[in-house]
Design a protein around this nucleic acid. Structure first.
Lengths: 348, 348
DNA sequence: GTCTACATAGAAAGCGCTTGCTGTCACGTT
DNA sequence: AACGTGACAGCAAGCGCTTTCTATGTAGAC
C-alpha cells in the first residue's frame, strides 16, 4: 500500500539503513549508491513517515508558534517573520521544518493545551508571541510547562512577551511601558491635559504595561488622572468604538484619546467622527503598534512603531539556534514614536 | 528520563495496553481501573508521545491549514474560523487536534513542500485557503499531491479556492467572478464609464476571476475597455498606491478605481488623496473582501463582502467530518455588494 | 606480500505506542 | 450442576524508521 523505506531499499538493492543515511545525509555513502537510492526514492514517489522517524530519532521537525489572535495582523506579521526564519519549506537549508502557528484566542486553557500538544509532538522549538495572560496561577502553570519543554530539549523563545525567568526561556520583550510613556508625553507636550485612555483586556500584560507607561507620563508631568478617563475593552475596533463613546459620555471635555493599539484607535476615530468631532482639530488620537493600515487612516495615526517583523525574525533565528540569544536571555525591544496627523495641539 | 506508557502502567499496576485504552477511551475499562490509571498519569505527569502514537495507530491528530499570507487578515480570518472548528484545544470533544497553519507566501514550491511535510506527518486533514496559483505545471503537481493525500486518508478541503476535480477535493469556492461583476455594475449604474482596475498578481486565480467579472460587466454594458486601464500588482497597500498613480498618469480622466481587494483599495485611496482628488466627489473607489478595517476608511469603502469566517467554519467542519460535503463536492459561496461612501455619481 | 586503516554497507535492536487475539473471572441460563 | 456469555485485562506482534556495532573490501604502509 504505502511505500516504506524498505521498499526503496529493495528497489535500490541496498539495506534500509543505507537509504536512511542517504536521506539524512549524515553518514558517508558512496556517490553511486546515493544516486541509486535517490533514483528509487523518486521512482517510488517515497515520502518519509514523519512519526516513525520522529519516534526513532527522538526529535521532530515541528516548530510551534503560539499567537493570541491569528486574525490580528499584529500577530500575523510576527508569525510570518518567525516562520520565514524557521525555514519552513523554502527557508534555509538543513532539513525542512514544519513551522506551525497555533491560535490560542487568548484563552489560558488553550495556551496550555497547545503547549502540551507541542510537547507531545516533541517539537523542536516553540515561540510564544504577544502579551501573556496575567494571573499567578496561570503564570505558574505556564512556567512549569515551559520549563518542562525546555528540559526536554525544546527551545523556547518569547517574542513580544515579558520574560519568564522561572521557565528558563529566551525573551525578546517589547518595551510597552516605555512606548506608552513616550506617546503620552508627546501628547502632553502638545498641550493636552485631559486624556482618555482606551485600554485592552485587563488580564493581559500588554494592557497593563502600556497603561502604566501612560500613567507614568501623566505623573511625571504632574497631571492628576481622573479614574473615569480609563475604559477597558477588547483589542478590536468595535470595542474601541464603544469605549470611546463611553469616554465621551463620562467627560466630553477630553482633548486626547490614547488607544491600547491601532485597531482600537481606528474604532476610536470612527466614534469621534460619528460624534461630530474633527481629528486633530477638536481631539487628538493615538494608537500603538503602527500596523500597516495605520498610515492610511485619515488623518494618519500617531502611534508607536513596534519592529514586529524584525523581532519575529530574530526570535525565529534564536529558536533555530542560528543566532546567539541576548545576554542574560533577555532583550528589550524599543518602539519608536511615529508622530502623524491624528495628534495636534488641543483647541484653546 | 522521560515518562512512558510503561511507567504509568507499572505505577497503576496494569498493562500498558490498558493504559493506552484508558487514554484513548475506545475500549471498555472498568471504572476503578480507569481511575487508578488516570491517577498514575497525573502523578507521573505523563505526556503521550505523539510520534509513537501516530506511528502505531497510523494516523495523527494534525490538521494543516495552508494560507498564502498569514499577515493578511483575509487569511487570518479564515484560518481563525477553520481552527475554531477543527477543535484545536478547547474545541469540540473527541481527541484534541493540533490545527497548524502553514504560510506559503504564495510560492508554488513552498505550497508543494508544505503538502509533503503534512503528508509526511500523516495529517488527518488539510485545508487550502485562498486563490490558487495559475499554471498548468503547478496545477498538475498540486492535483497529484492532493490526490495522493486524499488516497492516504487525509481529508482535503479547499476554502475560497477554485475546485480541483482531478484532486478529488471538497471545494468551497468564492464567486469572485460574480462579485467582481456586481461591483462594477454598481459603478456603471452610478454613471461611470471610465474605470481603472488595479489587479492583483497575474498568476493568481483570484486575480483573474475578479478581473473577468469586471470585464464581463463592462462588456454587458457595451463599454469598451482601454487596455491601459488595468494595472497588475501585489495584494498590498503599497502596490495599490503605486498602481493608482500609474493609472492616473495613463489616463487622468478615469472616474472610478476598482481594486483587487480592500487592502489595495486603501492604497488607492491614499494615492488619490495625495493627488488632490476627493472621494467620492471626484473619483469613486471600490474594494473587495470587506475586511474589518474597510468600514473605517474615510469614506467607508464600497466593496464585496465575502463570508470569510462562515466559509472557514464550514470548511473546518467538513474537514473534521462533522458536516456533509456539498453535493458534488463543490459549493460556490457568493459575496454581497456593500455600497458605502467611497462610491458615488461621477462628476458631470 | 602481510598488516593496519579507512571507507562503506548491513544486521539488528530498539523508539513508545496500538490493537487483534487470547485468556480469566463472575454471572445468568437452562 | 454444567455451561454459555459478557466484561475486562494482558500478551505480543508490529508500525517505519534510526543508529550502534559489526563485517567486508580496498588501499596504502612496511
Amino acid at each position: 500500500m504505502t511505500v516504506t523505506l524498505a521498499d526503496v531499499a529493495a528497489r535500490a538493492q541496498v539495506s534500509p539503513a543505507t537509504v536512511s543515511r542517504v536521506l539524512n545525509g549524515n553518514y558517508p555513502v558512496a556517490a553511486s549508491t546515493r544516486e541509486r537510492v535517490l533514483k528509487a526514492v523518486d521512482e517510488l514517489d517515497y515520502v518519509l513517515n514523519g512519526p516513525a522517524s520522529a519516534l526513532a530519532a527522538a526529535t521532530s521537525d515541528l516548530v510551534g508558534i503560539l499567537v493570541n489572535d491569528i486574525a490580528d495582523p499584529f500577530f500575523g506579521i510576527m508569525a510570518s517573520a518567525i516562520q520565514a526564519e524557521i525555514g519552513g519549506p523554502g527557508g534555509r537549508a538543513g532539513g525542512e521544518r514544519l513551522a506551525v502557528v497555533c491560535n490560542t484566542g487568548g484563552s489560558p486553557e488553550r495556551e496550555l493545551t497547545y503547549l502540551t500538544l507541542l510537547q507531545r509532538q516533541r517539537a523542536a522549538a516553540v515561540v510564544l508571541t504577544g502579551g501573556a495572560i496575567e494571573g499567578a496561577a496561570h503564570r505558574a502553570a505556564m512556567d512549569a510547562k515551559l520549563r518542562k519543554l525546555a528540559d526536554a530539549g525544546t527551545r523556547v523563545v518569547l517574542c513580544g512577551r515579558p520574560p519568564a525567568p522561572e521557565a528558563g526561556a529566551i525573551a525578546l520583550t517589547f518595551d510597552n511601558r516605555g512606548g506608552g510613556r513616550e506617546l503620552t508625553e508627546h501628547l502632553i507636550g502638545l498641550g493636552h491635559r485631559r486624556l482618555g485612555y482606551i485600554a485592552g483586556p485587563e488580564e493581559r500584560t500588554t494592557t497593563r504595561h502600556r497603561l502604566e507607561g501612560h500613567r507614568a507620563a501623566l505623573a511625571a508631568h504632574g497631571i492628576e488622572e481622573d479614574p473615569r478617563w480609563t475604559v477597558h475593552g477588547r483589542y478590536d475596533r468595535r470595542s474601541g468604538y464603544e469605549a470611546t463613546l463611553e469616554l465621551l459620555r463620562r467627560d466630553p471635555t477630553l482633548t486626547a484619546f490614547v488607544a491600547a493599539n491601532d485597531t482600537v484607535a481606528l474604532g476610536a476615530c470612527a466614534a469621534l467622527r460619528d460624534s461630530g468631532l474633527r481629528i486633530p482639530q477638536d481631539v487628538s488620537v493615538a494608537g500603538f503598534d503602527d500596523l500597516p493600515f495605520s498610515i492610511d487612516a485619515v488623518p494618519a495615526l500617531t502611534t508607536v512603531r513596534l519592529p514586529l517583523a524584525e523581532a519575529g525574525a530574530r526570535a525565529g533565528r534564536i529558536a533555530m539556534g542560528r543566532e546567539e540569544p541576548p545576554p542574560g536571555g533577555i532583550a528589550s525591544v524599543r518602539g519608536e514614536l511615529m508622530v502623524r496627523g491624528s495628534s495636534g495641539v488641543p483647541r484653546a
